[in-house]
Amino acid sequence: MISASRGSSAPIRARAGASPGLGEIGIGDGSDAALRRIELAVSWVLRVGVGVSVLVIAAGLAIMFARHDGYLAITGHASYRGLTGAHSRFPHSLAGLAHTLARGRGQGIVVVGVVILILTPVLRVGVGVVSFLVEHDLPMALITLYVLAVLVGSFFLAQS
């Protein structure tokens, strides 16, 4: 049903010479090969970010459950509500996170994984800036740099 086996090679093959008039306009380095390199770099960053965050989150969850017998029961008195209520406690600042991690709590490790996940899009914008610079595509590099600046600015805004 799903032709997933196609993977990444088929589209590239199909593209060769299939899109007349696309790369030739204006900017010298907006060529197809350059775009391909940028796409692969961005895709790689996303995959690594996602992979690492899943592993860290899973490890954190495992530690969380290993340290609390009550969590693991399928039936029992332990309820998730104590963990998800309006007053449940979990780290939501860097200092709080460091404190939780120092005590080896799974909760803190999960938060690290979530933070990695949140930072993945920021990282891929950063890779975009560098990639466009390497390919001498100045307009796109500046556009991406602006996006990166706004993102970084928003994180500082959050802290204040």
């Binding site: 989150i57 954190g60 998730y80 979990f90 780290p91 939501h92 938060v111 979530v114």
Partner: peptide, 14 residues
């Protein structure tokens, strides 16, 4: 970032 600092991202839900 704002949501995280405000304590809206609960690890056991996330």
């Amino acid at each position: 970032g704002v949501y995280f600092m405000r304590g809206q991202i609960d690890p056991i839900i996330a």
